[in-house]
């Protein structure tokens, strides 16, 4: 079973890596790169929300911290891109560890509102500070090489996906997080240390997000508080993960690809009806919450396990 997944994964990544050889149209390459980026953002959000059960409504902040750190180090300190990128990821991870300790004591709705408020506060801070460029944002040196950014984004997201897969699906770490999600007091009674595990999962969610933000900043070459620290990054990641299926890694990735493809189609071909995009997106979210509470992938998994002749254990450990 494990070997099958490994072989399938390797073939899939190789297939993805050959895309720039086949697709020469810059527009499509750009769309695919961004789709890969959203996969990364959706799965990293799912680590803290789907696996650990803490709804982070400030995921965009980590993206923005990574983007701004990379931009500031490259522009003001003239660091090379690679180093600045790593620094951006570390800055995100450290922020998560630092704010996680007090914030992760809150539960449910309180955690959601606190992270949301913090992310909005960071956005306002970036608007009034001088070294972030304020509302004008920051420009990075243009580096117009779509293939480079495709491979950079692919590398970051594939490493993130593989790392999360190993940690959450194979290693006991994933089970520990799920134990916290299901019953935090019970997990503590089993000898787990929820505080430390929650902070670890928060950092695990934030660090790759920061690196993705850094790649995004250098790729787009222009960042401002609204584009990288605004609500939209968080909102889209949340919607993608919920639509795809929480508590899995494949689900959010599928959700990211589907919703991003839909969004791009709208913006590219139906730009006169951009407002209609809001209506349809809103309707899709509301309807999928009502009719597909497990998300697309969760529903497929459930259907498969109900068809299977052998009772399969599902996510929550109940036998069906």
């Amino acid at each position: 079973m494990h070997r099958k997944i490994l072989i399938f994964g390797v073939i899939f990544v190789i297939a993805l890596a050959t895309i720039p050889l086949l697709v020469h149209d810059t527009f499509y390459l750009r769309v695919i790169t961004e789709a890969i980026m959203w996969i990364g953002l959706a799965i990293t959000w799912d680590v803290i929300a789907g696996y650990t059960g803490y709804l982070n409504f400030g995921h965009g902040a980590f993206f923005g911290i990574g983007a701004y750190t990379t931009a500031i180090l490259m522009m003001r300190a003239h660091w090379p891109f690679g180093l600045a990128l790593i620094a951006g990821g570390l800055a995100s991870g450290l922020t998560a560890a630092f704010i996680g300790a007090p914030t992760l004591r809150l539960r449910g709705a309180y955690f959601a509102i606190a992270t949301w408020a913090l992310a909005r506060a960071l956005q306002q801070l970036a608007l009034v500070l001088n070294f972030t460029g304020g509302p004008d944002g920051m420009r990075l040196p243009p580096f117009l090489n779509p293939e480079f950014f495709f491979y950079a984004m692919l590398t970051v997201v594939v490493i993130t996906f593989a790392g999360l897969w190993i940690l959450l699906e194979f290693a006991p770490f994933g089970l520990k997080l799920k134990a916290i999600r299901e019953d935090e007091a019970g997990a503590m009674a089993l000898g787990l240390n929820p505080t430390s595990l929650k902070i670890q999962s928060f950092v695990l969610s934030a660090l790759p997000t920061g690196i993705i933000g850094g790649v995004y900043a250098y790729w787009i070459t222009y960042i401002d508080p609204a584009s990288v620290l605004g609500d939209l990054v968080t909102d889209q990641a949340v919607v993608m993960a919920v639509f795809g299926g929480l508590g899995t890694l494949v689900g959010p990735a599928i959700g990211a690809v589907l919703l991003f493809a839909f969004k791009t189609y709208f913006w590219a071909y139906l730009s006169d009806y951009q407002v209609l995009y809001l209506i349809i997106l809103g309707a899709v979210i509301a309807l999928s919450v009502v009719f597909l509470p497990d998300g697309l992938w969760g529903t497929i998994l459930k259907y498969k396990s109900s068809k299977s002749p052998m009772p399969l254990r599902n996510d929550t450990g109940e036998t069906k």
Partner: peptide, 26 residues
């Protein structure tokens, strides 16, 4: 039988908010 009612409520009303804003803009 939903895993996370708080999240579901938040996401549902978030969807409603987007829809209303879109309808109002139209």
């Amino acid at each position: 039988k939903r895993g996370n009612p708080v999240l579901m409520g938040l996401v549902f009303t978030f969807g409603l908010a987007l829809m209303f804003r879109g309808i109002a803009l139209t």
